[in-house]
């Protein structure tokens, strides 16, 4: 009898361990947001005209705030997202749209932005807008930014929050990746969200 109980307990815990391993929910690498409201739908300017967040309903939208003169953080982050998309199959990657919003409309024309972002991945889009519009969009996406003076008036940098934001297919902010998230982590979470 004792042997049977022992076997039953062993089976129970083995089953529990296997169940947790195989059927546990995905653990996101980014921070999951459970917002009851859709994300703020902005409209900014790209190389081919106005671009709105709602234009991409049905796709995952990864939003990154940066600028083309950004010395290190922006290219590193964009390169990571580009690599993450290359680790997906075609059906997955075509359903992810990265939008880079430039915080430097004085130097980043829509054309220049467009040429910059496609270096990282062909489908990437770069957009920007007036300082007033950018102040509104950044505030509502929790992005702080400010100019930092350089050696000349044109040689300034922009300090900014370096998070990556992921909007789900229905237009809700779902994930916030901190700066430093790896290619594998981005790919892992995006693939899960595309299931």
């Amino acid at each position: 009898m004792k042997l049977k109980i022992g076997i039953a307990i062993t089976i129970f815990f083995t089953g529990l361990a296997l169940g947790v391993y195989f059927f546990s929910p995905h653990t996101f690498h980014g921070t999951v947001i459970q917002s009851p409201n859709p994300s703020f739908d902005f409209t900014l300017t790209g190389a081919d005209g106005d671009v709105s967040l709602s234009d991409f309903r049905g796709k995952l939208v990864v939003i990154y705030f940066g600028y083309t003169f950004c010395p290190d953080i922006c290219p590193a982050t964009l390169a990571n997202v580009g690599q993450a998309l290359r680790r997906m199959n075609e059906n997955q990657s075509k359903n992810v749209q990265l939008i880079m919003i430039s915080l430097d409309p004085e130097r980043d024309t829509p054309k220049k932005l467009s040429e910059y972002v496609v270096h990282f991945y062909p489908s990437f889009i770069g957009i920007t807008g007036s300082n007033e519009k950018l102040a509104e969009v950044t505030s509502l996406y929790g992005i702080f930014y400010e100019k930092s003076a350089g050696s000349t008036t044109e040689n300034y940098t922009i300090d900014h929050t370096a998070t990556l934001l992921v909007i789900d297919r229905e237009g809700y902010l779902k994930l916030v990746f901190p700066f430093g998230v790896t290619v594998d982590e981005i790919a892992d979470d995006l693939k899960y969200m595309l299931r």
Binding site: T31, V32, I33, Q34, S35, P36, N37, T138, S139, L140, Y141, G142, I143, F144, Y145, E146, T161, L165, L173, V176
Partner: peptide
Amino acid sequence: LPRMQLAPAFN
């Protein structure tokens, strides 16, 4: 506590 939304950035 729920993660409701991003707080706005401000200066």
